[in-house]
Design a protein around this nucleic acid. Structure first.
Lengths: 146, 146
DNA sequence: TGATATTCTGACGTTTACGTAAGAATTAGA
DNA sequence: TCTAATTCTTACGTAAACGTCAGAATATCA
């Protein structure tokens, strides 16, 4: 065993860790949302690294919080998917320019998500304000009525 | 015509105003999310008041922003539904205690929504922070790499 | 090396939230 | 009142996101 062997998990464990079912994980792989690990032979059990668990957690979270469809999530995370794929090369590539390109791409990806999250927060803040205004109004009416 | 006759709209106009289709409006009525206006005779056209348009707008908004299912929305707005129903009585009832009860109920309903909206905002804020941290990290790596 | 637990691959089923279409009825306008 | 536009009801269709089940194959472990 190599010293850097990453602890691997199986689909059931991953499911427990992330709060979804194995079926969901397979489905996400089926639609290309999770890496299909092309190196897996037909019939063999899927194995996952801690990093992939993190990825899945992120997916679940974005889906929940932003209410995105899996297709929207796919395109939102596409860049990251590519990035993850390139990560192995990252440490091997000597070319400073290439490393920079990868990093900048990651940065753009993060900014994308951030702007999405922030705009959603803005909309919610607006809604909250309106609700607060209504609450005040009702409060006042209660006073007037007593 | 009575002076207080509220301008009434038909399903097509309401659809345009709210950005949904007539089918959606009928469906919402079917599942009890929108008042079924029991006083409508079989086959006759549906009519809506401005208040009902507002209600529909609220539904669409909460659905979008919080990603709630129609069933969740139903139970969230149930109290309000009752309130809307009681609104007509509100102006007629003399009993101060009764009016107060209605108002307090409305207040609770608003607070319910507010707490939902705020907790969602909190979760998003957390996510935003994590993303910002990641962005910083990437930024630093870019500097180190140059 | 068995036995047991877990997973795999289809494949069909299910729920939610509507879309679509047809024929009849209603409403609005000249 | 006649016509055109809109709506009504009924009913089947659909896409997304999985659930469920069966039989076979893998992995784990004593």
């Amino acid at each position: 065993m190599s010293a850097t062997a990453p602890r691997t998990l199986r689909i059931g464990e991953v499911a427990e860790l992330t709060g979804v079912t194995p079926r969901t994980i397979r489905y996400y792989e089926e639609i290309g949302l999770l890496g299909s690990e092309a190196e897996r032979a037909q019939g063999k059990h899927r194995v996952y690294t801690e990093a992939e668990v993190e990825r899945l957690r992120e997916i679940v979270r974005l889906k929940e919080l932003l209410g995105l469809s899996l297709e929207q999530l796919s395109s939102l995370l596409e860049a990251e998917s590519a990035r993850a794929h390139l990560r192995r090369e990252y440490h091997q590539t000597e070319a400073r320019a290439e490393r920079r390109r990868i990093l900048v791409q990651a940065q753009e990806h993060i900014r994308n998500q951030l702007s999405l999250v922030r705009s959603r927060m803005g909309e919610l803040a607006e809604l909250a304000q309106e609700l607060e205004a209504r609450e005040k109004l009702v409060k006042q009416r209660i006073r007037e009525n007593s």
